[in-house]
Amino acid sequence: MQSGTAADRASVNFPSIWAFILADCFSFAILFTIVMTERIGQSDLFDKAARHLDAQLGLVNTLILITGSWLVALAVVAARRGDGAGARKWLLAAIAVSSAFGAIKLYEYSAKIGAGFTPITNDFFTYYYMLTGLHFLHYIGGMAALIALVFNLDFSKVSETSVLRWIVSVGIFWHMVDLLWLFIYPMLYLLPLI
């Protein structure tokens, strides 16, 4: 279904947003390094504090992000086939499922703050709020981009390079929100349990 020059096809299969993704992933690697090195010397405090987090809510949120990612990937496959209506339907499903991540995260934050765990409680919670907060900003940006796609894109022209590139690029960004969480979840919630 793809038309146009080789450069057009390349820009759809491997769009330039990858430059942003690379910079973002490496900056999170730096954040991970900071958190993990700050943990040295106070690992008891970190692990005890981490046990106050709700690993089950974290699990549910991980499953939500994975499912949202899968739905967005299905939307991209539909768009590549030239099925604009199908792509829009999968994107709507992804938005519906993924909105639960935000609701759960906000509930988690308010429950933690209600129980007296704020960013100034100790170093663990400083970094917990920093990492999950920066990730949450990415989540908000990704959700806004998905919603903007669904309402602003002309899905009848999905075979055109510029329209398809939008769907692929936003999809890649959305998968990155998932990708980063796959490291943040074990780092903050799971490994302290062992």
Partner: peptide
């Protein structure tokens, strides 16, 4: 394009 994306990032 990578410079543009870098700027945004």
């Amino acid at each position: 394009r990578w410079v543009s994306w870098l700027g945004i990032w």
